[in-house]
Design a protein around this nucleic acid. Structure first.
Lengths: 122, 122
DNA sequence: GCAACCTTGACACGAGCGTGTTAGGGTTAC
DNA sequence: GTAACCCTAACACGCTCGTGTCAAGGTTGC
């Protein structure tokens, strides 16, 4: 049995049990359940919780923001719309004259496309 | 002078003057100022405000979320970190089919819509 | 069989978001 | 020179986020 219950998982990940349930509700880390409904955190979930903590602390991000990032990933229309609005920023002639921003934007797209995940399951 | 003051800009964009100031403070649309400090909305800003409104309404996004998207664009390290965490998701079929997080999101929608009686969906 | 866990639900609470409004003071138009 | 605008600052309010805590009830370990 290499699966921990919610309080054990809390102890080894630095979250509180309350937050583990909240994180599950927000859809970011959802452990499987036992027959009786107990949350069972395996190594994958534990790792995920630790890296999530790392991410939030290092970049001062909230759970809701990570959730939004995922929503953008999953909804191509949304991501395109947001990206389009953002890339239209500062289109006043002064800014465009340099031509710098365009290359920057193109690079950005390159990175986005290159980052598309292949949905690896292991 | 094809620049509008804050109330005029509000009238033609569908925002309130209050929101125009709030949007500026959130860093999304910052019009230049007159010598006396008056906000001067030119065609570029007006267009930007209209498309922003469009974006928020069509995709049910908040100003803070658009701000976060921009923050990700501008901070490659942040974007890479978020993307990496999301792409490492161990997607077991159960998690996806349960749809728990989706219901959570939809509940938010329900509550939002319930607060605006004339927009009731039936 | 009972202590120690687990479940969901709820109340609480400070911080931030999205909005209106009001107050006190400067600017513009005519 | 005054009415109608603009500015910032602030109070207010309901909602969401991130947390803790507590209650009522089911499960597990020994």
């Amino acid at each position: 049995m290499d699966a921990l219950t919610v309080n054990e998982a809390a102890a080894t990940t630095g979250w509180s049990a309350r937050m583990l349930r909240y994180i599950e509700r927000s859809g970011l880390v959802s452990p499987p359940r036992s027959a009786a409904g107990y949350r069972l955190y395996g190594p994958a979930e534990l790792q995920r919780l630790r890296t999530l903590r790392e991410l939030l602390e290092r970049h001062d991000v909230g759970l809701a923001e990570v959730g939004f990032a995922r929503r953008m990933r999953d909804d191509a229309g949304l991501e395109a719309a947001v990206e389009e609005w953002l890339s239209a920023q500062a289109l006043r002639p002064d800014d465009v004259s340099s031509g710098e921003w365009l290359r920057f934007e193109q690079d950005k797209h390159q990175r986005l496309l290159a980052a598309q995940p292949e949905l690896e399951v292991r």
